[in-house]
Design a binder for these strands. Sequence first.
DNA 1: TGGCAAACGGAACCATGTTCCGTATATTGG
DNA 2: CCAATATACGGAACATGGTTCCGTTTGCCA
Lengths: 200, 200
Amino acid sequence: MADIDGGSTAAASRREPAPRKRADARRNEATLLDAAAAAFVASSVDVPVREIAARAGVGVGTIYRHFPTRADLIVAVYRHQVEACAEAGPTLLATVGTPHAALAQWIDLFVDFLVTKHGLAEALQSDNAAFQTLHTYFLDRLVPVCAQLLEAAAVAGEIRTDLSAVELMRGVGNLCIGAADPRYDARRMVEILIAGLSLR
Amino acid sequence: MADIDGGSTAAASRREPAPRKRADARRNEATLLDAAAAAFVASSVDVPVREIAARAGVGVGTIYRHFPTRADLIVAVYRHQVEACAEAGPTLLATVGTPHAALAQWIDLFVDFLVTKHGLAEALQSDNAAFQTLHTYFLDRLVPVCAQLLEAAAVAGEIRTDLSAVELMRGVGNLCIGAADPRYDARRMVEILIAGLSLR
DNA sequence: TGGCAAACGGAACCATGTTCCGTATATTGG
DNA sequence: CCAATATACGGAACATGGTTCCGTTTGCCA
């Protein structure tokens, strides 16, 4: 909420005096984020760019100037929620009884996030170059958190230790694909996977 | 190898006298299957149709006449291997010690098949209408086999009983997505999932 | 208010799947 | 062996969706 100016990091904005964007540009960026969020809900994360542009009442060029790739737009839309998920990690670890339980609850959070965003899980695993940023962001932000939980559970001797956080995240992400289908319960599948993690 | 004439079922060909296709048509179908198989290996199952056509030295129209959808082509290319996998089910059940072990081995077979076919796992989960046939064929052919193994293990009291064969297949298929990445070991993830299946 | 860099819109371009139709040819009856 | 015809072929053309480009518009500051 505090960062009124664009996407630069806190560190960068502290350095730079005021490369303040034009008013219409800032307005459009906000409009675009809203339009994209709405479109993602109405259709899915791979809703056509043209449709987002139409919703926002801007040209497609404008989208690409603000968000160089589709992934950047997705990241911008979901940044808050990803942050929240990341921050929940340490909290759960401190709160919940056992590390394994904390891990399970955190994964739950992540899964809930994924399955409620139509097409996001699919996009996350896509090897399409355009989604590279998305992939990277999610991994950069969440893998360390996951690793911490995993490590704690491993130290407590609750789970097998031969699995990296990246792999676990990937696996969970994959299991969330196709969660829209009522015949497939992604949550349960992940639950089973997590169960398989614990030693005997 | 025995069915010289096209894709009609054994039953159908027994009824019909001889709706024998033209020689060039049969030749082209074979050429196409080879070209497609090669292209799938060289790139992945979503190699552009035009490229398959070029490899086979035919026009794209020819592909579509023989295989109405891309999925039909994929199914045709992999039919033998899917059959083999399906037939291995009962064999394993009869051979291997416990039903749970048989299930694990069968899943192994399936996973091996999937991870060695670049992009096949991805295509399998795609909600793209064009892949409907693919999805259906795999499910029709393999789910019953999986169900039999699952049932046996359930009866033996080795695993939880609240999971359908369709879900398990979907989950396993999903876990195989992105198996090309060396940092992600799909086989291990599936192993963990199967482990999570067993009761305590 | 005038000048100009920033931002805009959307046509144009590229890649891909899919359809359509004029042309070529295998097959078969005479 | 030839001609007639159904069958099959090739590839241009169409549809869709991402991305780029550039002439035009507009906010901002002197």
